[in-house]
Design a protein around this nucleic acid. Structure first.
Lengths: 144, 144
DNA sequence: TTTTATCCTATTAAATCTATAGACTTTAAG
DNA sequence: CTTAAAGTCTATAGATTTAATAGGATAAAA
């Protein structure tokens, strides 16, 4: 399960994607509109900024805005930034690999195979899920 | 990420699948061979027994053994029993559904789509990963 | 120089995960 | 019919992670 932090991040980024190229957006505005605790959101946006997903502007008229185009930000990277590994086992993780304590011999472990497949399918789907696609879908569903 | 409990459960079940139809196996034996804390494993096996995945025999010469054929036990059900939902969001979980607090309107949420796809792919792979397939793979890899 | 808003560090509270303790029950064997 | 072996069950402790908050520092604009 994704953490709340991660879900908040996704919602905030979708919100900012909606306002892409409309200038900086206040933390307070996002917090209010998406029902996210402001202080928590502050920490999240800061992290996204440090990861170069967002840019920010301080002082009056400041706020946060997307650093990249909505079509260049996908769920895979957001989740990795917020929650870390996407794989279900550390020993099959691409970005957060660690040997499994339980396994004596990774080479002959019959369990890993399934989790490698899950990882690959998951990455393909999440990597293809960009903010602009999410927005488009949102609009399409609203019309029904 | 899977919990240790879940990983222990998988390893214990693979071990028991290897000993299928060889009579009850002691908790202690499994704990020792797979490096799992005995008391923790005890609780795990009990849970698997209550879920009808395992049978047990009390008293001298007792122990645990598979209730079903190794080809009828798959990773999907083990993970669900141990860790609960497999989906990454509660609002797309088949067995542990809960509405997302963050979403105001599930019908028009553009985020869910990707996670439904991830869920379906994951379930297909994990559902097809049975104990006997894991064992077979283990043996094949050992020969290399 | 005052106001607005992000930046940053520290801390707390709650929840979850991991592990262990100990008494109880059942069964087999002598 | 007694004893030892082994699972059953409840309770709890300790560690880690998650979620949220507090408060001051910094920067920019008016």
């Amino acid at each position: 399960m994704l953490s709340k932090k991660c879900k908040y991040a996704i919602h905030a980024l979708v919100y900012l994607a909606e306002k892409y190229q409309e200038g900086p957006v206040h933390i307070s505005e996002i917090a209010q509109k998406r029902h996210i605790p402001k202080k928590f959101l502050e920490a999240i946006l800061l992290e996204l900024r440090n990861a170069k997903v967002l840019h920010s502007k301080k002082g009056k008229g400041g706020g946060y805005y997307l650093h990249q185009k909505p079509s260049d930000v996908n769920l895979m990277e957001i989740i990795r930034l917020m929650d870390g590994a996407i794989a279900m086992l550390p020993c099959v993780s691409l970005h957060y690999y660690e040997p499994c304590e339980e396994c004596r011999n990774e080479k002959t472990c019959g369990i890993r195979d399934a989790f490698i497949k899950v990882r690959d399918e998951t990455l393909a789907i999440l990597g293809g899920s960009t903010l602009d696609k999410i927005l488009k879908r949102e609009k399409a569903l609203a019309l029904k």
